[in-house]
């Protein structure tokens, strides 16, 4: 009987911890959304640093949501969750950074720019 109560207590305790995790995640996410929004809308820095700031806030928010909403952490039960996640991060950054790098060089190595299809370059100034 006492065992049953202990189980219920543990359930309740786990529930409380999960609630805490969702609330923390939510509050942090709102902050991490509002700050870059106002930095950008008010043009608080020069362009290049604005871009880096926005990207930094987004990546921070990615990790906040992965930890507090998806509950992925070092303690994650199947370690495979973590391994698959790390591998995906690796491939995604490879794909995005690689594409940008290649296309940047492609644009600047072009000698012929026909007027009908002017490639204005994609890199933000």
């Amino acid at each position: 009987m006492t065992n049953d109560f202990k189980v219920i207590d543990e359930q309740y305790e786990a529930g409380r911890r999960a609630l805490g995790s969702y609330v923390t995640g939510f509050v942090l996410s709102v902050i991490l959304t509002i700050i870059p929004y106002f930095i950008v809308v008010r043009h608080m820095f020069e362009e290049q640093s604005l871009i880096w700031a926005a990207v930094l806030f987004a990546v921070t928010q990615l990790f906040v949501q992965v930890v507090f909403f998806l509950h992925l952490s070092k303690k994650s039960k199947p370690l495979w969750n973590m391994i698959v996640f790390a591998f995906t991060i690796f491939v995604v950054s490879f794909l995005v950074i690689g594409s940008l790098w290649i296309m940047y060089n492609l644009n600047y190595n072009m000698t012929d720019t026909s007027p009908a299809n002017t490639n204005e370059g994609y890199i933000p100034k």
């Binding site: 996410s29 959304t33 950008v40 871009i51 926005a54 806030f57 987004a58 990615l62 949501q65 933000p124």
Partner: peptide
């Protein structure tokens, strides 16, 4: 979040 950042924030 990434659409918000890369499309809208950086776009603005």
């Amino acid at each position: 979040i990434f659409i918000f950042t890369f499309v809208y924030l950086i776009g603005a």
